[in-house]
Design a protein around this nucleic acid. Sequence first.
DNA 1: GATTGGGTTGGAAACGGTTACAGTATGCCA
DNA 2: TGGCATACTGTAACCGTTTCCAACCCAATC
Lengths: 332, 332
Amino acid sequence: MNLEQVARRAKVSTATVSRVLNNASVVKSSTRARVLKAIEELKYHPNLHARNLAGGKSRTFGMILSNLENPFFFDIYKTVESDAHHAGYEVVVANTDYRPEQLVSSIRLMIGRRVAGLAAIVSEMEPALIEELNHSGIPVVFYDVGAPRQNVTNIRVNYRRGIEKVLDYLYSLGHRKFGFVGHHSLLGPLNERARTVMDAAARYRDTSVRTAADADTLEGGRLATRALLASGEAPTAIVCVNDVMAVGALRELRERGLRVPRDISVTGFDNIKLSEFCHPALTTVHIPREHIGHLVADTLLAKTDKASTAEHEMVIDPEFVLRDSTGPAPER
Amino acid sequence: MNLEQVARRAKVSTATVSRVLNNASVVKSSTRARVLKAIEELKYHPNLHARNLAGGKSRTFGMILSNLENPFFFDIYKTVESDAHHAGYEVVVANTDYRPEQLVSSIRLMIGRRVAGLAAIVSEMEPALIEELNHSGIPVVFYDVGAPRQNVTNIRVNYRRGIEKVLDYLYSLGHRKFGFVGHHSLLGPLNERARTVMDAAARYRDTSVRTAADADTLEGGRLATRALLASGEAPTAIVCVNDVMAVGALRELRERGLRVPRDISVTGFDNIKLSEFCHPALTTVHIPREHIGHLVADTLLAKTDKASTAEHEMVIDPEFVLRDSTGPAPER
DNA sequence: GATTGGGTTGGAAACGGTTACAGTATGCCA
DNA sequence: TGGCATACTGTAACCGTTTCCAACCCAATC
């Protein structure tokens, strides 16, 4: 089922069929009709691999994400996909599950596919990989990764500011003992997130912080919280690295008969839809995922369409969202 | 950056480089080393399009889902992806958002990609599309779609049984007025799900059912519940088409000061992780998504590897899961 | 020393499209 | 009637691989 068969059936050359398919240049309308009829009759579907190979172009963006199950990543993906689709591009996704080797193989795959652009929304990235990508000549957008480089746009969220807003608020409510619930990939020595909490808390002389980590899931949040409570004196406020884990934390606390926020306060991060629907609704920090998605899509499209005029670094300031999971520190 | 350049650098022919890449047949180890070195130095990445074209095979499965955001679909996807990856295949996903035209274009795209197999986990599918797929010769696995056909395996969940279990239980608790929260795509005339509720409820003379529908999201569940409560006498139990919408329902009820399950009962469907983590934990129906995922992956792999010996129809029986969101019907 | 044959390697034809370029037909004008 | 745009359409090279088949090398065998 290839061009030649269609051509034969329509009694034209493959070139003409190709022209009809790309509805480019001029084809006599009677010929076009004949070709379309043949395509229809044969249920012909052009081979995309051949097209990409011959055409040299790719109308496909790649997107690599740490955890598509987390609405934070999903929302970004969805926006990018929608924008790209609108512009005639399609998007293929890869999920790394926070596994570095998955990241490597996904990137290789994307290069092999000769995608027209790549968005990497992952928490950490080896410099060597960035180098490899750079060398491939594929336009790349990173989210939250180190130093910007040529051909690479970096979008970063001022995570530190967000955490500080949370801690300031909790401090003002009288909280002095904080617990931090994170996930493994965020607690590596290179990662700034856990450190941010420590640093921010350190601004106040009289505070203490303990941390526990697990996977980036509901269950993970629950287990981390359990670990946190099992070790030493209980905190009066639990700061979670994201909303999903915070919901897991809520569940563990409820099970232990602790009432939120009366007995203990909890905060999330990201402001995913669920944070508004769980009980109690989460005090959290809003990260404008749609905005980020548009930014990513715009950047990719701009980079492929013409010489890049796009910014090379964009910083986004997160917003504090007050809901029902935080309250005054209980008296002792 | 193509085979030829690598070949030139390693002073061999392209055929040899290809052999090294596919580590097939025999290549003298000294030659292989030379080639690998050249590949490394040039940061060469084989062009997958060319590979697929020349090789005629594709090591890629396609997967089309109604709503990847819903953990129900995501869990199936994840299992398939993992199994496929294990067997050396990759998976490309497409999300239809329940939009028929998206489904059509996704299928066309998959055919164009010449995927080695396709899993369509979508709620409805035009016969003409099935025909088109069949004609393409691509092995296909459907979930929950009409009559089985040649080259097509169908996996279906006995949804009716699940709903019946829920209604029987609620009935035994004294409930007589049910509300049904569904979503648009499931309320079409062709769809059996809404009807299932009606039918099952009709077995009891003294019941009444009203329905409301919205999208397959937290917000949708909330709005549908609101619509349900706004119209006439309130039901004593709300049966939701899936867990996500049920969590949305819980939220709306809480906001109205209705306590679950004291004032009103709520049930979900699917048994996603969240149903255990929300408050109150949802009484629901378990659908073995991992099992389904393995089934899908196994079927696809079996179909591509050899002549299909796979079943052509598999039916899965769902299990009732009792939790905290259901209780006796309140006295009037 | 010629023959044989296994282990390696190279040449070149696909795979299914795109596209630059050349060719043909048609209509219009001088 | 010949010349010449103009509007289509066909020919064939090329995109980057795989793979069949032939060729080569070299040691073992006769």
